[in-house]
């Protein structure tokens, strides 16, 4: 009887854990939305990605928060910190989307501020390559709508 009760308890915990996964994703996304200062952005980036979240979806969110943090640091005069945050985020993954392009832009600006014009140009170039592809698609979509 005790063994059966333990079995039921264990399965209940597992079902609850599965349910908590969805709640954790919702909370994580809400944290990303409300991260509007340096502390909250740093805390968000220190947090892990909830289980069950598609890795590329998670990367998009993390890239965007990292961009905002890097921009904040750069505007505050911390080009070194901005470059480090952007590099860390880019090492997590890259895609031909606006979020990855933003990271190249802000890292290029940080490198420029640090007196690294050649490396800055390489990052601007990466950003513009992605941007060009996206802009062509956007203009084509606008043309289709008209």
């Amino acid at each position: 009887m005790t063994a059966v009760l333990r079995l039921v308890l264990l399965l209940s915990v597992l079902v609850l854990a599965a349910g908590c996964g969805e709640a954790a994703t919702a909370t994580w996304l809400e944290s990303a939305r409300s991260a509007d200062d340096r502390a909250s952005r740093e805390a968000f980036l220190d947090e892990g990605v909830p289980p069950g979240m598609q890795p590329d979806d998670a990367r998009v969110v993390r890239h965007d928060v990292a961009y905002q943090l890097a921009r904040e640091l750069l505007d505050g005069g911390d080009a070194q910190g901005a470059g480090a945050i952007a590099t860390e985020a880019l090492n997590e993954g890259r895609a031909d989307d606006v979020f990855t392009a933003n990271l190249f832009v802000v890292r290029g600006q940080a490198l420029e501020a640090l007196g690294e014009p050649v490396r800055a140009t390489l990052d601007y170039h990466e950003a513009l390559m992605i941007n060009e592809t996206l802009l062509e698609a956007a203009l084509a979509a606008e043309g289709d709508e008209e």
């Binding site: 979240m53 802009l135 606008e142």
Partner: peptide, 21 residues
Amino acid sequence: EMPATAAQLPAPSAALLRAQA
């Protein structure tokens, strides 16, 4: 629960991309 592919996210507007460029 884990989707196999990335979400179909809204495309960035041309205005955003021009600002980025």
